[in-house]
């Protein structure tokens, strides 16, 4: 048995065990499946540790070789070490760690996220144009939903809220269901392809 078939065999056995446990109430399969699922948590944690080591090695190398913008790497290492140390020394519930979270992490994260609002405003100004019937429908729908979702819309007329509810619950839900079902069918197809050995992207050296 060559290496590729060994990987494929492991994949098929694990997938079938988990599948059987999901559909039938057989205690042995349930126990094996639960253990396999727990392995993924352990593997995930090991992968996290590996990722940190790999990231550190990459940034240290960038600093040592003085690559372009190496100071960002230095900045990363300093911040990473500082935050990790604060968390390890004072615990993630301690006052110093919460200070870092509340005064650095949260303001920075929300600021970056808020920039989306500015981009969306310019994008709406430039993209929402009555170029065709389709774009006109999109434009009118967008305006009604915007009005229906805010207090201004409700203050002008309750009709906006009613139309917004209709748009959300009927056409939007229908489209979302279509996407969800397509995704589900795609996942089943991918699962069958992996089980049959057609899809071998997860096997080392077979990704292309």
């Amino acid at each position: 048995m060559n290496r590729n078939n060994l990987f494929l065999g492991i994949t098929v056995i694990i997938t079938l065990t988990t599948l059987v446990a999901g559909f039938f109430d057989l205690s042995i399969f349930n126990t094996i499946s639960a253990n396999l699922v727990n392995w993924s948590v352990v593997i995930g944690l090991v992968a996290l540790a590996t990722a940190i080591i790999s990231l550190m090695r990459m940034h240290v190398k960038r600093i040592m070789t003085r690559r372009r913008e190496w100071f960002y790497s230095l900045y990363f290492i300093v911040v990473f070490t500082a935050v990790c140390s604060i968390g390890l020394i004072y615990s993630s519930r301690g006052q110093p760690f919460m200070y870092v979270v509340n005064n650095i992490l949260v303001p920075l994260s929300t600021t970056i996220y808020s920039l989306l609002g500015l981009w969306m405003a310019t994008a709406a100004y430039r993209a929402f144009r009555v170029r065709s019937i389709d774009s006109t429908i999109l434009l009118v729908t967008g305006i009604i939903v915007l009005l229906g979702s805010t207090s201004f819309g409700a203050a002008i007329s309750p009709v906006f809220a009613r139309i917004t509810i209709f748009i959300r619950l009927i056409p939007t839900t229908a489209a979302s269901r279509g996407i969800l079902i397509s995704g589900g069918l795609g996942a089943i197809a991918l699962g069958i392809r992996i089980l049959l050995g057609v899809e071998r992207g997860h096997i080392p050296g077979q990704s292309k």
Partner: peptide, 11 residues
């Protein structure tokens, strides 16, 4: 609400 109204006006 005011920023949403501004976007509508801009459109």
């Amino acid at each position: 609400s005011s920023s949403s109204m501004l976007i509508i006006v801009l459109i």
